[in-house]
Amino acid sequence: MATLTSPPPPVAEPTTGTSAAAPRRRPRWSRVAFHVAVGVAVAVWLLPILWMTVLALSDNLALQRNSQTLVPLGFTLDNIVGELRTSLIPRWFFNSVVVTGITTVGTVLTSALAGYAFGRLNFRFKKPLFILTLAGLMVPREAMFIPLYLMFATTDQLNSYQALSMPRIALPLGVFIMTQFFKAVPAEMEEAARLDGAGHWRTFFQVMLPLAKPAMAALAIFAFVQSWNDYLWPLVVGTNPQFYTLTVGLAQQQASFEAARSLGDLMARGVLGSLPLVVVFLLFQRHLVRGITLGSGEK
């Protein structure tokens, strides 16, 4: 079974330093020094995010005089409340949820179905079709947007949810992962279902899908992150601000003079835009990490 790549379950004593790289227990001062050093590194690493949050909670006028600060100047929630009230952020958030939802569910479903067929069924042209799917792994989806754009522009479907989500559903990598998974399920599981008189459909839904839950969860998270943070394609097909996704919407007028005068509002948008995925990440850390490892082909 794939090793858990996520943080291991919290251990009672956090300083039992038995890492793989250093099997020996090190002296106490060395451990303290290590934690201090890494602690400082972490603080510096997260400084940009902290700064964004501080500015988002600061008064706009105060920021015009000085923005080089690590504590909120004239603490206020006005920026955040104001952005939620007057901007299109709620709309963009909704768009992102719809697009990401369709993409994620679609990817997991189509991958699981196709993976079952490739991994478990016998049919003609199985091998060539599978090789075709593998060849699809090599197509840079990011780069091939011109023909897709033409397709949606000529059918007058720019600024639509289908344009934003449809091209991202088929994921050869997902099919590959699910195929590998279903191939590895012991034949006995299927035999048992067969003896009960289950056909392929019932076997798939009642035996295989429940077994595949962890793999599907990881795949779902992978598809979710990819879709939520996608920038180029939504930028290309969303020309009407009503159809921006959150990622595209937040990018508008970032460096403009107007925006620079209200740095607090700008950073408030940044905070609001990051929150959904940060929350998802902190809640589903383990799955997310597994999804990424899976998605890169490591597992």
Binding site: T16, A22, P48, I49, N229, Y231, L250, V280, F281
Partner: peptide, 24 residues
């Protein structure tokens, strides 16, 4: 790469920027 709550926290912290949208 070691066990313990500290390292698990460091991992989370180092990974956190990756979940931000490119525009942020």
């Amino acid at each position: 790469n070691r066990k313990g709550r500290g390292s698990s926290f460091y991992r989370t912290a180092f990974f956190l920027p990756y979940v931000l949208p490119v525009s942020v």
